[in-house]
């Protein structure tokens, strides 16, 4: 067997071992509430301290105006580039040595959604895609403004990365969201597809995490913790990434479902291109659940025609609002059940 095959096969084995580790943890978790074995205790404390950190950060969040100084994670490539090329492979070796309980679920972090940062894609001399007389930058701003009004009516705090036609780098957009301590980041874009007959919507998030097993563990152990934040931080940074991915997926699914269900009625040829993952810079750099929704296709002539009509843009905004509300409601319901 050649070296490449052996190497890949070993990766497949490691991936399976990683899954087994999760199962073993989970199966013994129910017996550990009083035994306090060190390894299991460490597992159990991860979500507790995650909550502690979130609360601390929440209390200390700065005002919006200070966003320029506050980007913790720089983007991984040219800020003007829409796609990052960085790989997001999981370090399986680390995972085996210290099996961080990967999949996170909102039930492990009963938080509230209050602040939404809307990001109308492109702006200024960055027109985005063009279709006839329409420019993506104009459409995204219009839809975002409509969406902001709808969300504000629901009592949510809404900010926008731009409220007029100006260029803002992706780095600045992410930094703004991070500094404002937004609970959700929703980037709005219009797609352009090479096959112009196709019209579709798709929603992106930054990678998956799904394992409901940890949720129960978090529930069991999240009531009391004597741990200091400093003891937890290194661990938390890693797990928080998984948490964000899981939340972003939930949000993306809600938004995509809502967009398709709503728009398909008025645009029957519309294709549901699904929820996808991609390393968009804004999604890499933001520190809250974040999605990028491609809400329409300017490459399609009929779609272009629809986008020129205010009622269709309003329809898109309403669908986005429903998706975001749906996600927020999920969180509230879970919080109520857990309390």
């Amino acid at each position: 067997m050649d070296r490449l095959k052996r190497q890949i096969l070993r990766q497949a084995v490691d991936e399976n071992l990683s899954t087994i580790e999760g199962r073993r943890l989970e199966s013994s978790a129910s017996n550990v509430t009083t035994s306090g074995r060190p390894t299991l205790l460490r597992w159990a404390l991860v979500p507790i301290l995650a909550v502690v950190l979130v609360v601390v950060v929440w209390a200390a969040r700065p005002p919006l105006e200070s966003w320029q100084q506050a980007s913790r994670k720089p983007p991984q490539s040219d800020p003007t580039a829409r796609l990052a090329t960085a790989s997001h492979e999981v370090d399986l070796t680390d995972r085996l040595l210290f099996p961080v309980p990967r999949p996170m679920d909102m039930r492990a972090f009963p938080l509230e959604v209050r602040r939404i940062l809307l990001d109308p894609g492109h702006g200024g001399d960055d027109h985005g895609t063009l279709g006839g007389a329409l420019a993506e930058k104009t459409l995204t701003l219009d839809i975002a403004q409509r969406l902001a009004k709808l969300l504000e009516k629901d009592g949510l705090e809404v900010e926008m990365t731009r409220r007029d036609d100006r260029r803002i780098s992706l780095k600045e957009r992410a930094a703004q969201a991070n500094a404002w301590q937004a609970d959700l980041f929703v980037s709005i874009h219009i797609n352009w597809l090479a096959t112009r007959q196709v019209r579709g919507i798709e929603t992106y998030y930054l990678g998956p995490t799904d394992d409901p097993r940890l949720i129960e563990l978090a529930r069991l152990e999240n009531r009391q913790s004597g741990y200091r934040l400093a003891e937890m931080k290194p661990l938390l940074e890693e797990i928080y990434t998984d948490y964000l991915q899981g939340q972003s997926l939930q949000l993306a699914q809600r938004v995509q479902r809502s967009l398709f269900a709503s728009l398909h009625k008025v645009n029957p040829q519309l294709k549901n291109r699904g929820v996808k993952t991609a390393p968009f810079v804004v999604l890499v750099s933001t520190e809250m659940p974040a999605i990028l929704a491609e809400v329409s296709c300017l490459s399609n002539q009929e779609e272009e025609e629809l986008l020129s009509r205010p009622y269709y843009r309003d329809h898109i905004a309403q669908a986005l609002a429903r998706g975001i509300r749906g996600y927020a409601d999920d969180i509230h319901q879970i919080e109520e059940k857990g309390s």
Partner: peptide
């Protein structure tokens, strides 16, 4: 030349 990751796959 590696075990496929998320970015290598679409469904």
């Amino acid at each position: 030349g590696r075990l496929p990751t998320e970015e290598d796959q679409r469904t």
